[in-house]
Design a protein around this nucleic acid. Structure first.
Length: 420
DNA sequence: TCTGGGGTCCTAGGACCC
DNA sequence: TCTGGGGTCCTAGGACCC
């Protein structure tokens, strides 16, 4: 059996933990630059606020119903996520963190009343962290996902749902929209509709050959999983990332090369920081920038430039230099750049890379020491304390008008409790 | 005025090899 | 009429996830 533990309305729930007066009230959390609603409490969903709705389009609803609005506070959500995972580990030695708000658990070898177990895990998460968590248990990951969704739909399940008997599964799948199945995406739904497939059960009744032909391997796996045959691997070993992307939309369009260089230098620095944390080297970086696609009638451009590091590097200066050179190469006067970013790819583990004969090892030694010194200083005094001049003040611009405190990750923001 | 950010996997087709 | 046959590797793009 597999469990899926899914935090309900995660970002909104994190904010509520420290603002309990917001329980029962509509809450939304916004994307970067306070652009779109990316998390909504049940009350906010009930008001018709859609996932990804731009703030300026829902302003009236927000005002009328006194919706609590928060800018994204990822330091807080990351820390709360870690706390939930800690609780889950009490219930299974194998926990696979699937996303910031979801984790699979392998229950192989555990013999118990799984329905009670699911409810117990949920209750413990809530008691230990304040986050409501839906726990679904079923014979495959895809079915466990569905079971956890049932918990959200039916409060009487008390956060836990165990689903295993074929007749029960059939009953659930017959009422479950195929569009809500894990692995069935937006592009596939219309295709399925023309075939008369509306529910998850309809999908399981398609002939195997048709599924393989029309929906390829991923669709076939989903088909098997829905039929109770596990075939999506359980993986509790946290692999290194294969690519790292740092990108942002700008509050104001950027029209000068210098300003764009400064932002992109900061993206590159953030990316190399993440790269060094996972002890990898990078062979290639792409730098891109484009104009505002929503702005009709103004000139549009979408540029990207590749930089190669044939020997592999994790050197701060190498990335920042390459990023700035790439920016200068692609920048064109007369455009208002709205979004830019860097993607570093072809990452290899440092342990697997031996030195190249073409590199001046003395040079290499110097830059390695410089990079390490930067890491050491910045880990003590904060990211960006030691930085390159081209980075400006070292801050990636963004507007976050509704930012909550870093309750759990900054000394000065830790809540105080007074007892009368 | 205002529209997110960061990932993974799979596949088809091209380039290249003998 | 008639164009070998069998591989590997790489890449771009698509689809999916949160």
């Amino acid at each position: 059996m597999y469990a899926l533990a899914d935090c309900n309305n995660f970002f909104a729930s994190c904010e509520r933990v420290f603002r309990p007066e917001l329980n029962g009230k509509p809450v939304i959390v916004l994307s970067n630059n306070d652009g779109c609603a990316v998390a909504r409490s049940n009350e906010a969903k009930a008001l018709g606020i859609k996932m990804g709705a731009p703030l300026f389009q829902i302003k009236d609803i927000v005002k009328k119903h006194d919706v609590a609005v928060f800018s994204g506070n990822f330091a807080l959500y990351g820390d709360m996520s870690r706390r939930v995972q800690e609780v889950l580990r009490r219930y299974s030695p194998s926990v696979e963190q699937y996303s910031i708000d979801e984790a699979f658990m392998d229950l192989n070898g555990i013999e118990t009343d799984f329905d009670a177990y699911a409810k117990k895990i949920s209750a413990d998460c809530y008691r230990s962290t304040g986050i409501p968590v839906s726990v679904g248990i079923a014979p495959t990951k895809t079915l466990a996902k569905i079971a956890s969704k049932l918990c959200k739909q039916y409060p009487k399940l008390k956060g836990g749902c165990y689903m295993w008997r074929p007749q029960d599964i059939e009953k659930v799948l017959r009422r479950f929209p195929v569009a809500d199945v894990w692995g069935i995406g937006r592009r596939t739904v219309p295709k399925l509709a023309t075939m008369g497939v509306k529910t998850a059960w309809d999908y399981t009744q398609l002939p195997e050959a048709a599924v393989r032909k029309l929906f390829a391997l991923p669709g076939f796996r989903t088909w098997k999983e829905l039929r109770g045959e596990p075939c999506i691997e359980f993986d509790d070993i946290l692999e290194d990332r294969q690519s790292i992307c740092v990108s942002r939309s700008f509050t104001k369009e950027i029209t000068s090369a210098d300003a764009l260089c400064e932002q992109i230098a900061n993206f590159a620095e953030t990316a190399v920081h993440k790269l060094r944390q996972q002890h990898s080297l990078c062979l290639e970086m792409a730098v891109f920038a484009f104009t505002n696609r929503f702005k009709e009638g103004s000139p549009q451009t979408h540029a990207s430039v590749l930089a190669a590091f044939p020997d592999g590097t994790d050197d701060h200066m190498a990335f920042v230099t390459a990023a700035v050179n790439a920016t200068r190469e692609m920048f064109q006067d007369g455009y208002g750049y709205k979004k830019a970013g860097v993607v570093i790819t072809k990452l290899i583990s440092k342990a697997h890379m031996s030195g190249s004969v073409f590199v001046d090892t003395k040079e290499e030694e110097r830059s390695r020491k410089l990079s390490s010194a930067m890491d050491a200083v910045n880990s003590v005094y904060g990211d960006g304390t030691l930085r390159f001049g081209i980075q400006g003040d070292g801050v990636i611009w963004s507007s976050r008008e509704y930012q909550s405190p870093h309750y759990t990750t900054k000394w000065e923001d830790i809540p105080t409790v007074s007892v009368k």
